[in-house]
Design a protein around this nucleic acid. Structure first.
Lengths: 166, 166
DNA sequence: ATAAGGGTTCCCATCATGGGAAGGTCAAGA
DNA sequence: TCTTGACCTTCCCATGATGGGAACCCTTAT
């Protein structure tokens, strides 16, 4: 490879379909900051460099970055993506290995969804009694001050009895 | 206050219904670490101290910590809780001011829920074709490599055309 | 030659939380 | 009284994914 020739290095590499980090960022939707970060944490291999130290990305790199972005859009963590990338590039992988990663993540997502929905329910319940006016009486604060979040959830055992303040 | 008497300081303060940080943590469900943290970021006022420097919490403090924990359980951020605490202790607050904080948070929660559900949908869609066996063919990876996340969502404009790798 | 618009590294911040070290304090038992 | 273990204190560091910004270098067009 003649990446280090004395004239027009970038032009040479562009003819080889390589791109700067800014271009890679623009086409993949992964910010340049994050591309460097992914390299630092070894999610991707260190990019080739021009003589001046500029990172270069070829179509295979670009494709990998898109893969990463899509997995991130689905909420996969970096560690999960590391696993998926390994499987992606392993021609002998078993379908069920990939499925396992995806399934685990799906479970996590469903748990997260349930958690948020229970927050929403509790908050809506709290908002029901709210007069939404200029009066100081407020069932939302009352709820937070006394109960509210435990619509039937975990009860922290109270070892001491305290007098109420509000 | 005789907190600094030479004998049995903690016993004296316990008679005044004060508790150590560990007890406060146990009864409120807020960890001691977090109680100190909340003090440092000025969410709560600096606690009184014994002569030896131990923090002391009276029932009003305990009640406030419970308020904070309940709000956290509902997903309120520290800044939102700062606002709610201010309103809670402001006798002249307007109901609608509290409502505004809660409403904004509810909107954020609903957005978060929608986001997670779209992830779940996309992932389920991807999992549909999976054979879950020992064969290397895998529609999940194929989906991540080509499309998948854009069930009809945002399309990043592609300025360059790259040949496919996979 | 100079300016604009890249690129590079390095450090810091977020948000809420916890881990752990080093050292001081309290209560109970020998 | 001395020891022991459980508690407290402060301080520093780490998380995960991301962005901001400084200080400086490279390329290209005017």
């Amino acid at each position: 490879m003649d990446l280090h020739s004395h004239d027009g290095k970038l032009i040479n590499v562009r003819m080889r379909h390589s791109h700067t980090i800014g271009e890679a960022a623009a086409t993949t939707g992964v910010s340049a900051k994050m591309i460097r970060h992914y390299e630092k944490i070894r999610l991707i291999m260190p990019a080739e460099r021009t003589g001046a130290g500029y990172r270069l990305y070829d179509p295979a790199d670009i494709h990998k970055l898109r893969f990463i972005r899509r997995a991130r859009n689905l909420g996969f963590s970096i560690d999960e993506i590391k696993e998926l990338l390994g499987l992606w590039q392993d021609e002998t992988r078993a379908s069920k290995d990939v499925r396992h990663v995806a399934d685990s993540h799906l479970v996590a997502l469903r748990n997260k969804a349930a958690e948020i929905h229970s927050m929403i329910d509790a908050l809506e319940h709290l908002l029901e009694g709210c007069t939404n006016d200029d009066r100081p009486d407020c069932p939302i604060l009352k709820g937070l001050a006394s109960d509210a979040t435990s619509t039937r959830s975990k009860n922290v055992g109270h070892k001491f009895g305290y007098e109420r303040i509000c």
